[in-house]
Amino acid sequence: MEEKVITCRNLTKQFGNFYAVNNISFDVYRGEIFGFLGANGAGKTTAMRILCGLSFPSSGEASVAGFDVYRQQELIKQHIGYMSQKFSLYENLTVLENIEFFGGAYGISRKEINKRSEELVRKLGLQREAKKLVGELPLGWKQKLAFSVAIFHQPKIVFLDEPTGGVDPVTRRQFWDMIYEAAAAGITIFVTTHYMDEAEYCNRVTIMVDGKIEALDSPANLKKQFAANTVEDVFYKLARGAKRENSG
């Protein structure tokens, strides 16, 4: 039996009368690429923030890497990586300084940081930019760097919140190569996106509409179930029923 790294039972997050996340349940298995699809405002980011220990759920249960989201957030944080929607490396620090800081934040030794950051810079082809300020890099490189920093401490799971927003198609392709590589190395990938072609790259896909999970299966099975040619068609069939304003 495959190992569950995330379990989620009836998870709900309520802001006043508004259910941002409404009673969702699912499991994520080790090493899989788990896609979280939904329109803007469907509740993807809120659900992800709860699983990352950034936000308290209102009710329901969830555990990440074996730790409880109510009481053991700091333990969860040691075992996950996170890349937020908004670019959040320090723009006024260099590539190497950013890597060093976040490596240190996860308690990696200085020696190990030096070794791994050298490898990383070489792998990303950023040797010449290593001592440049991150703010001066083009967006595509920033995103690749942010992803590399998020998995620098070799977490069990990495959460990616719309990691390829605003990135050109070539870079997006390269980005997904990096995701595959990380998954092959045993890191579970939890990724939100609203690019439907990216959904096809995932092992399993969840489609959220108005805070609820409307579908959860592999892309192939979803297409079969909804008699659609692409995941995009599946999404349209489900999203058409959305009541929330599709904006923001």
Partner: peptide, 14 residues
């Protein structure tokens, strides 16, 4: 404002 605090909050820094 820059959003970097979120990246700090998701690390085990106390």
């Amino acid at each position: 404002e820059t959003g970097t605090i979120e990246q700090i909050n998701v690390t085990p820094i106390k």
